[in-house]
Design a protein around this nucleic acid. Structure first.
Length: 264
DNA sequence: GCCAACGTTGGC
DNA sequence: GCCAACGTTGGC
C-alpha cells in the first residue's frame, strides 16, 4: 500500500457540545473511536463536498478537532465508503436540513469514515502554526526529526494557510510529517503561543477598522441590500464546481453528527 | 466574546 | 459579470 495511489485528507469535527436546532452537534475523537465508523454528514460547502466526492475507499484521513479549546489532529482514519447522498439534508428536523436538496437530485454528499487509531500525541494546531512561522532552517530541535521536507510540507498545509475549509486535501509529505509528530511528540516544552509579530499583526489589522485590506475597491455602486433569509440555493455555484461524478444512490447507517458549522 | 478571513448573495 | 454587503468559520 502506500504511495502513489494513496490519497490523504483532513476532516474536521467539533469535539465540544454545540446545539443546533435543538441537537448536539458534538463529535469528538472519543465518540468516533466508540462508533468506529461514521457517515460524515452535514458538509454544506461545495468545495468540501467536491473533495469528498474524490475520496476512494481506503484513502487515509486525519481527524481534526475544530472550534474547541485546543484545536488539532486527534486521530487517523480511513475512508470506508465513497460518496453517497447526505440524507440528513432531507430531514427537516436535522441541524443541517437543506430544503433545496431533493432526494431525486441530491445536492450534498458524504462519505463514511472509519476510525483507525488515536494520535499517540495530539498534534495541536498551535504547533503547526508555530512551525509555519519559522524558516525551514530553523526547525526546533525537539521536532527536527520531521526533517526539511516534512517541515516544508507542514508549512504549506491548507490547515495552516487557509483554515476554514472543513474537508481538505493533505499531501503525502505532510501526512508523513503529521504521522511522525503524532508518534514521537517532543514539543511539550516548546512555547506554542502565537509570536509577538503575529499578535501584533492581528491587532494592527483590527485597528484598521473595517475590511479586508485587499483588493477592495471603492465606488459605492449601490447601497443597502435586503439580505436574504438564508437559504442554500445556488445551483449555479453547484454546477460551476461540480465535477463528473457518479454518486452511488445507496444510503444507510444511522446518522451521527458532525459539523461544519459554528457557534451561536 | 471578539473579530479576521473568506465564501455567498444579489443589486447594479 | 463585478464587487460590496452579508453571513459563517473558527482561532484566539
Amino acid at each position: 500500500m502506500s504511495s502513489s495511489t494513496t490519497r490523504y485528507w483532513l476532516l474536521k469535527a467539533e469535539p465540544e457540545t454545540r446545539v443546533v436546532k435543538g441537537k448536539d452537534v458534538k463529535f469528538s475523537v472519543d465518540d468516533f473511536e466508540h462508533v468506529g465508523t461514521s457517515p460524515w454528514e452535514g458538509v454544506r460547502n461545495y468545495e468540501a463536498r467536491n473533495l469528498m466526492k474524490e475520496m476512494k475507499e481506503g484513502d487515509k484521513a486525519l481527524f481534526y478537532h475544530s472550534n474547541c479549546k485546543t484545536p488539532g489532529i486527534a486521530a487517523f482514519a480511513q475512508v470506508s465508503k465513497e460518496a453517497y447522498p447526505d440524507y440528513t439534508a432531507w430531514d427537516s428536523s436535522h441541524p443541517y436540513y437543506d430544503a433545496k436538496s431533493d432526494s431525486k437530485d441530491p445536492k450534498w454528499f458524504m462519505v463514511d469514515l472509519t476510525f483507525v487509531s488515536r494520535a499517540k500525541n495530539f498534534v495541536p494546531l498551535a504547533l503547526l502554526r508555530k512551525i509555519s512561522t519559522l524558516p525551514v532552517s530553523d526547525i526546533p530541535e525537539e521536532i527536527s526529526y520531521v526533517g526539511e521536507t516534512g517541515t516544508t510540507a507542514l508549512k504549506s498545509m491548507d490547515l495552516v494557510t487557509r483554515g476554514r475549509l472543513s474537508v481538505q486535501r493533505v499531501g503525502e509529505d505532510a501526512w508523513k510529517a503529521i504521522e511522525q509528530l503524532a508518534e514521537k511528540g517532543g514539543w511539550e516544552d516548546m512555547d506554542l503561543r502565537p509570536t509577538a509579530t503575529a499578535t501584533k499583526k492581528r491587532k494592527q489589522n483590527r485597528g484598521s477598522d473595517d475590511g479586508p485590506s485587499k483588493k477592495v475597491k471603492a465606488a459605492p455602486k449601490r447601497k443597502g441590500k435586503p439580505a436574504k433569509p438564508k437559504d442554500l440555493d445556488q445551483e449555479d455555484a453547484e454546477e460551476a464546481v461540480d465535477e463528473p461524478e457518479t454518486p452511488s444512490p445507496t444510503q444507510q447507517s444511522p446518522g451521527l453528527r458532525r459539523s461544519t458549522r459554528k457557534r451561536t
